[in-house]
Design a protein around this nucleic acid. Structure first.
Lengths: 206, 206
DNA sequence: GTCTATATAACGATAGAC
DNA sequence: GTCTATCGTTATATAGAC
């Protein structure tokens, strides 16, 4: 699952890093091959030497981005824990994963919105229904009066929303709350400490 | 605040609608003037007659989109209600606002990510610190033991996240939960009914 | 106001020397 | 593998007739 793209050369790595940075920020159409080359400090022709076309380069970035965040989400919910530690662990670990790759969620969601089919090619089936056990676990707890009185899918979406959206909506939150970069990072740090317990308490009745 | 862009002609309106649709779906760089013209069923030259350039057209769409969702967020939190009905009302009304404009949040967040300065020109100052009274209201309740033990800004972000993210993350949620379009709309409908009460209960101790 | 035709610029991609 | 020079396409934008 770690799927390091084992570059064949340093140049190839530099290109990929530069491309990722540009695609994350500007999307497929917004990114410019020239800027990727500049950022990688190589000649523009090299891009086509190592990666045949812009589209190929993009696909690599896109695929690797998805692998970094989607399967982990599933795995964390399929671990062999009871509900409470599982939820606590999910929130904590997933915040940390996104902290390491804060631009990925917006990147994925934007590209997915433009082209919902691209993802299906190499993900669908592997992911869908894999969280079913977790949802059933939640639904069971609800029947026993141990979880909030809300369908499991709704609770799942709540849980993911409070975990991921603060990263996607960062520019807006920063503006509304008038936080500079340093303040917002402190805010996220605090969040990582407090949110797991909060989510457990809002989903499970103790 | 309603700021209807009072079109001077039907053609101008058709252009704007088509442009909005294209920009929402594909972003500034992804959208094509030709496609906007096709969708509006007019000649491509007309675009430049009514709106000087692609960029001008985009700015209009962008500005109007922000006006539709940001000030309302502030206003709903500045109404003269006590905390509980205010929160309940915010979640319900804001879901409804986004339901009417489901593409706007992702559009704003993506464009803002590319260019964080664009927004500041006509929003900053008008928005920042305007939710301060609400945050203080929350913090006060917390001191009285009536709110969850989490800083007000964190609770605010939680509230907005569970309200907005289900629209932005729709493609991913649909894939993971294996819902088709009809099913996801039912999911949102259910959410609109249940979420206000849920958010109140997770933020306020009763 | 609306059309056709065209100018102009930008970008991705390739050829070919080294 | 790396460079320079250039091609071919596409997109925005404009000129000018009606």
């Amino acid at each position: 699952m770690e799927e390091k793209p084992d570059y064949q050369s340093e140049t190839e790595r530099k290109i990929f890093e530069a491309a990722r940075s540009e695609f994350f920020r500007k999307g497929l159409e917004g990114a410019r091959m020239q800027e990727i080359a500049d950022k990688a400090r190589i000649n523009k022709s090299m891009l086509h030497y190592y990666y045949k076309s812009k589209d190929v380069l993009f696909q690599k970035v896109y695929q690797l981005s998805i692998i970094k965040v989607i399967p982990q989400l599933i795995e964390l919910l399929n671990e062999d824990y009871s509900l409470e530690p599982k939820i606590r662990r999910f929130v904590l670990r997933y915040i940390e994963i996104i902290q390491d790759n804060p631009e990925i969620p917006l990147f994925i969601v934007h590209e997915l919105n433009k082209n919902p089919n691209r993802l299906k090619k190499f993900i669908a089936g592997q992911v869908g229904k894999k969280i079913q056990p977790f949802l059933e676990q939640l639904e069971q707890a609800r029947k026993e009066g141990k979880a909030a009185d809300m369908p499991a899918d709704q609770l799942f979406v709540n849980m993911v929303s409070v975990t991921v959206f603060p990263f996607i909506g960062r520019p807006i939150f920063q503006m509304i709350l008038e936080y500079d970069d340093r303040e917002y990072e402190k805010f996220i740090e605090e969040r990582r400490m407090l949110l797991p317990e909060y989510v457990v308490q809002t989903i499970l009745k103790k």
